[in-house]
Design a protein around this nucleic acid. Structure first.
Lengths: 211, 211
DNA sequence: GCCCGTATCTTGACGCTGTCAAGATCGAAC
DNA sequence: GTTCGATCTTGACAGCGTCAAGATACGGGC
């Protein structure tokens, strides 16, 4: 782990007893596995098979199946953060930047349903403290909120509550979409991104209906 | 299944080769198991042990582990529907009835996190069509929406979209709460029900801030 | 140049799981 | 009273996570 760079620099020799960057290879294998079969297809032994190593090798890098899941969630939170930041780029104002980040949130979930599920997997939530990657992603949202309300001074609690009032609808839409709850409900479109756009549009619209 | 009534009427004999109402006993065992250890603790063998039958007995009632999960989800959707209907009872008007049903939704999720997770488990969502219990619960929401907009004629698509714009925030809040995402985020209160009340209050309030 | 400690990976074993096939037992219908 | 279907048990199999022990490779110290 500390010597990853050293190892990676060395030319890849196949059939090596020492892999070179097995941790990375295992993570890639895990991503491929959950993309194909969902989180329930994530198996230490399957990951090992796919990476071409013995069944106990992954334990040396992730300790546990939970450890692997954690690493996967971490990486996904970083990817989500990057996707949201990219979406914000070039927004005309703070309000639409916040809106774009919300839509990007749903986009990410729909494009990577298994990763999204891994990120909010019960076993992950049971961890004592959220990972730094997770906190960093939340910070993007908080910054967006503060930018919108830039004029007024926001108490910390107030900012957090506003953040959740923006997060909850997008997370709900993403979760419902990922769990296939949009289908067969009489919607004109079941495209979650379109729905996210309309949901956030209504929030921006000064003459919104009511709910 | 078709003869449950007949069986249940017969006095409970212990030590019977035929259990009497094993399906019910297995469901209760399953509920106890997920309440204690989450959905991941749900095991056909553990359920059988808890009900005092052989390890293969559950398969005769639920076919699969997935079948057991489906039955659990179904029962939970019915329980959710009942809880929402009870919350609506005696509401002064349609708008506050809708609001109460949303708060009840979050209440149910927080009170029964494992059941909530079972209801939206990936394997359940992959089913071709939603169960009737699930559809019935959704119908409560739809009826609430139609009552609020009772004056205007609502297109089917329109009603569904309004339903989702009410469902998404509540589902998001419930999911975030159940997955322990409210903690450590700087909120004044991490009580999901209180947050639901404030979120829905803002929606009702004519002079809402913005987002 | 060699050796040794440590990180890395393999092998083998254990108990747990879901699932299947085959057999035993019960209830009821005939 | 017999037979038949529903219900439950027993036994087996492969796959799983995890642990302990051993094999291998790499780099630093000499």
């Amino acid at each position: 782990m500390s010597d990853r760079k050293r190892r990676a620099a060395r030319p890849r020799r196949r059939r090596a007893y020492h892999h070179g960057d097995l941790r990375r290879a295992l993570l890639d294998a895990a991503l491929a596995l959950i993309a194909r079969g969902g989180v329930s297809a994530l198996t230490l032994r399957a990951v090992a098979r796919r990476a071409g190593v013995s069944h106990a090798a992954p334990a040396h890098h992730f300790v546990d199946l939970l450890g692997l899941l954690r690493a996967l969630a971490d990486e996904s939170f970083e990817a989500l953060r990057a996707h949201m930041l990219a979406a914000i780029e070039g927004a005309p104002d703070a309000q639409s930047a916040l809106r774009r980040s919300g839509i990007a949130y749903v986009e990410f979930a729909v494009a990577n349903p298994a990763r999204f599920r891994a990120m909010f997997h019960p076993a992950i939530g049971d961890d004592a403290k959220p990972s730094t990657a997770q906190a960093a992603a939340y910070e993007v949202l908080l910054a967006g909120i503060r930018a919108v309300y830039g004029g007024r001074a926001l108490g910390g609690h107030e900012a957090a509550e506003l953040a959740f009032s923006a997060w909850a609808p997008m997370h709900g839409l993403a979760a419902l979409a990922v769990d296939r709850q949009l289908e067969g409900k009489g919607l004109a479109t079941t495209d979650p991104v379109k729905l996210a756009e309309r949901l956030t549009a209504r929030a921006q619209d000064p003459r919104r209906p009511s709910c």
